[in-house]
Structure formats: C-alpha cells, structure tokens
C-alpha cells in the first residue's frame, strides 16, 4: 500500500500530464465528429462576446468594399424583379401568396478562419434568432458552409474549407452530380469529385449546388472549373474549382432554412427502416 502511494507521489507530474493529455486528445477526437463539438465551442457567452466586440472595431475597415458588394447585389435583385414584373402581368399570380419553401436570415461573420484543415466561422445570430443546426450559409457571391452548432446568441459554421465538409454540387451546364470537398491547399480553390467520365468538362464551366441535399436550394453558385484530370481508377473526374466567394474576407452572410427538410428526412428514414 505504502509503495503504491509512494509511486503516485514520485510520478505525480507524469500522471497529471497523462490525465490532461488524454482529456485534450479526447476533446480533439470529439470535434472530429460533425455535430458533436458541444463542449468546446466559440459559440459561448465569453468568446462570442469577445469576438463581437473585436468585430465592432474591425468592421469599419471593410465598409467600403462591403457597400460595393451590397450595391451589386441590389442591382442584380432589381434586374430580376423587373423581369419578374413583366411575367406577372400576364399570369396575374401573386407570388407572395404561394407557399415558400425556403426562409432566409441574415447574419454577420464575427470570426473566420481559413488557414487550418478544419475551418469554422462564428456568426452573431443564435437560437434566439431562430437559427438551427444544419441551416445552409451563403454570401451574396456563393456558398459558405453549414451551421454546425448554435448557442443562445451565436452560431458556428462548418466552412466549405473543412476536410469534413461534403456538399452535393453539380455542373450548371450538364447537371452531372458530384461532391464538393477541400484538399486544404488553397483557401480559394475547392475540389469537385465523383463527376462521371461521361460529363463534358471545360475550363470556366460554372458549378452550382445540386438539388439533392435538404440544406441548400438548387443552383446556389459555387465557382468555376479551374482544371481537371481523371481519378486514379479512370472513372471519375477530379476537378479544381475557383470559388466565387473570397473565403478569406466574409462579412455579411445569409442563412437558408429549408422548411420541408424535416419532412424529407423523416420520409427517407421511414423508407430505410422499412427496408431493414
């Protein structure tokens, strides 16, 4: 007995180190599972507060660029509205009465990283503003990521610049589907994999989100084809994509809620259960 106690006293530093190291490795592994990063997250009161304070200062530096971007978007929306008016005159349909499948929210990015392999963003909206896990996040230029965690006032987003991220995407031209991933090399270039060899690819082709996910609506812009080559087994293309979004400077983003997502997921789950 005495020897055991002596052993503990002699090795107390090592034991302390071993315990703490194990805890931190466990925390690390836990964050590697999507949706389970609940313990350690920047969407909490203190860190969210610090980040929004910092953001209230740094915001001023990018006001010019931000204004320019909003103007561009207004212009685009105005054009669309004009086109729409012409159509509506003939059809006499009030679109606001139609049930709308998607709901949009706005938020500000208060923390953004892009230099790691698993990048996250923090937004200044949370559960209070009816933000939920799994909402899609886009900016006026294109796709940004998916909400991975929410607290009362803040939300964290798994950026598309994250090795865990896998988003359904397609070629705008030919509607061939693939998955959008990131190989960690360049924050402005993402990769599209699993595009069948049959697809006709060209440099400069536009890539948009596919309609197969319950998170993003179809046709949100992602980027253009930079270059491509066949995979090792020669059946699929590996495509490098220049992102429309500059992921290194994000300010205003939109969150998209698909109100029918729950229904689709439940239905698909029921099918799977029946098959078993």
């Amino acid at each position: 007995m005495q020897q055991i106690i002596f052993f503990f006293i002699r090795n107390k530093n090592f034991l302390l180190f071993a315990v703490l190291f194990t805890i931190s490795v466990a925390l690390t592994i836990q964050t590697h599972n999507y949706h389970n990063n609940k313990f350690i997250s920047s969407a909490n009161y203190v860190t969210g507060g610090v980040y929004s304070y910092k953001n209230s200062i740094t915001d001023y530096f990018s006001l010019g660029k931000e204004n320019e971007q909003l103007l561009q978007e207004n212009l685009m929306l105005r054009k669309k509205l004009d086109q729409f008016k012409e159509v509506v005159v003939f059809e006499k349909l009030d679109s606001t009465l139609l049930p709308n499948k998607y709901e949009y929210f706005t938020a500000r990015v208060i923390n953004n990283n892009y230099s790691k392999t698993k990048n996250q963003l923090t937004l200044d909206k949370g559960r209070k503003d009816s933000i939920k896990i799994d909402l899609g996040v886009i900016s006026s230029k294109g796709i940004v990521g998916i909400v991975s965690d929410v607290s009362e006032n803040y939300a964290t987003v798994q950026s598309i610049l994250n090795t865990k991220s896998r988003i359904n995407a397609k070629l705008k031209k030919s509607s061939h589907f693939g998955s959008l991933i990131w190989n960690t090399k360049d924050p402005n270039v993402a990769q599209l994999i699993d595009i069948p060899r049959l697809a006709k690819l060209e440099k400069g082709d536009t890539v948009v989100t596919g309609g197969r996910s319950t998170i993003f609506p179809e046709g949100i812009f992602i980027g253009t084809v930079k270059d491509f080559h066949l995979d090792n087994d020669d059946n699929y293309y590996y495509v490098n994509i220049d992102l429309f979004n500059d992921m290194t400077s994000l300010e205003q983003v939109y969150l998209i809620e698909n109100k029918e997502a729950q229904e689709i997921i439940e239905l698909e789950k029921r099918m799977e259960d029946e098959e078993q």
Binding site: I23, S24, V25, A26, L27, T28, I29, Q30, T31, H32, N37, I40, S41, S42, N44, V46, T47, V50, Y51, N111, N113, K116, K118, Q120, T122, T156
Partner: peptide, 8 residues
C-alpha cells in the same frame, strides 16, 4: 482552443 474551435 475555445476561441479557435479546435477541440483540444
């Protein structure tokens, strides 16, 4: 880690 969202 808490600030960086990087687990541990």
């Amino acid at each position: 880690d808490i600030f960086e969202d990087s687990g541990g």
